[in-house]
Design a protein around this nucleic acid. Structure first.
Lengths: 248, 248
DNA sequence: AAGTGGTCTAGACCACACG
DNA sequence: GTGTGGTCTAGACCACTTT
């Protein structure tokens, strides 16, 4: 039953669908709100009423703004204005804490897990280690201004950095390798692609599954070509701009 | 009215929401379908019936798979299996056609627009040209296996490549610059970030607005540091993996 | 002309966050 | 406990694509 007469579509003129017009109205409204970067949107039901539409359609408009990286949702707490993107050069060897601070923001790293594992086949294939060879695995979550923006899996070669797991990994692993073990990567292969965050990663970042994300992988070797580190990072899509300087 | 008894949530047990279980079932079903890479999914209404749910919920599940880059939609024509991601090194100077063919795929480029414009302020700021200075502008759309995967805006310095607009730009601009003008980029700045495709770009690629995308910008200068080219690419998020090799 | 995806409504319940 | 976001239903119309 429900709908008898459905004004739905071309209702209030304009060739654009309602949710796109709503998106624009919403953004215009948001922009002229005070509150600065920590601005939080009113409840969805309230917004739906204010803009005379359904929650479903309103959420479609909100999702658009989310995809454009303008607003984001935190857990079930509501919608917030997205802070400026972090500039990130995965090729530079200044650690996370360094470049976040350099941009006037507050970094934080949480080590979620550390263990010695046996290299699974995919890791063996990538690294050149023998399948089943011992590998340090570290799982970390990183924050910018107390917003969780990425989870990171690190895999390290114990032959090159014995005892690493006894060190604190709440700062830069790169710094640790350099200062404690005199290790520096000589070759690097970077891969990155856009993909939704699912399961564990979405949960760890407190976002809903299917939230847009950016995956960055970094494979480092030393000067002899030995496997040093594999780094797999799952970022919120709206949290960063990757910047790479190349001269040649 | 409508719903009187709503089994909705924990209905068929399992702690995951229905649309996530649906996503998994759907993917499992898709994987064991014949038809290879050009596989097209049945109509949404049919799928909804087959999996005993609403179209809305089914579409939520489909959107998940879309976000994960497993399926995509073409215009209003339906859902298809996503082909393998293209490997793309924006730092390498082999043109689009070259590396697409190298991966066993069929490239195509369509020049949508060519014109001489006056540098807008943002371009002037980026390039170092004077605001209002003449700049060649080229808009192109590129295909892989007849799937439109990116639109590209090129801005070139006419002082370095006079008459470029009279050449065909349906192949590699890089090759043109190199062979016709003996120009090669010496410095490059790459930026990239994940962002939804909107308005013109979404339309040009035949995807719905808000579809996940990847933006890549490449600023090239010659050995004297003169502005050579600015390249802005809007990719479908599921069409590529960016790979950068770094030695140092 | 038929069918399909795209949009939209008016509800409802659930589970988590917060006071 | 209350409110909020998250999920879900059962429809309907529209516009485009395809037959």
């Amino acid at each position: 039953m429900a709908t008898e007469k459905n004004t739905s579509f071309g209702s209030s003129s304009g060739s654009q669908p309602l949710y796109l017009r709503l998106r624009d109205q919403l953004w215009q409204w948001i922009e002229q709100q005070p509150g600065g970067s920590q601005f939080r949107l009113p409840a969805e039901r309230e917004l739906a009423e204010r803009f005379a539409t359904t929650r479903v359609t309103l959420r479609q408009a909100l999702s658009q703004l989310e995809g454009e990286g303008r607003i984001y949702r935190s857990n079930r707490r509501g919608w917030f204005l997205t802070p400026a993107r972090l500039q990130y050069d995965p090729n530079k060897d200044t650690g996370f804490h360094h470049y976040v601070q350099e941009q006037g923001l507050a970094p934080r790293t949480e080590t979620l897990q550390k263990s010695l594992i046996e290299a699974p086949p995919w890791l063996a294939a990538l690294s050149g280690l023998a399948p089943g060879a011992p590998v340090y695995q570290i799982l970390r979550r990183r924050y910018v201004d107390e917003r969780a923006v990425l989870v990171e899996h690190n895999y390290l070669n114990p032959a090159l950095c014995p005892g690493l797991l006894n060190q604190s990994t709440d700062l830069s692993i790169f710094t640790l390798l350099k200062e404690r073990y005199q290790l520096q990567p000589a070759q690097r292969q970077l891969s990155m692609y856009a993909q939704a965050l699912t399961g564990q990663e979405a949960e760890a970042l407190g976002v809903s599954p299917g939230c847009a994300g950016l995956f960055i992988q970094r494979l480092s070797r030393d000067q002899q070509g030995r496997f040093l580190e594999l780094d797999q990072e799952y970022w919120l899509h709206d949290a960063l701009t990757v910047v790479v300087q190349v001269t040649g």
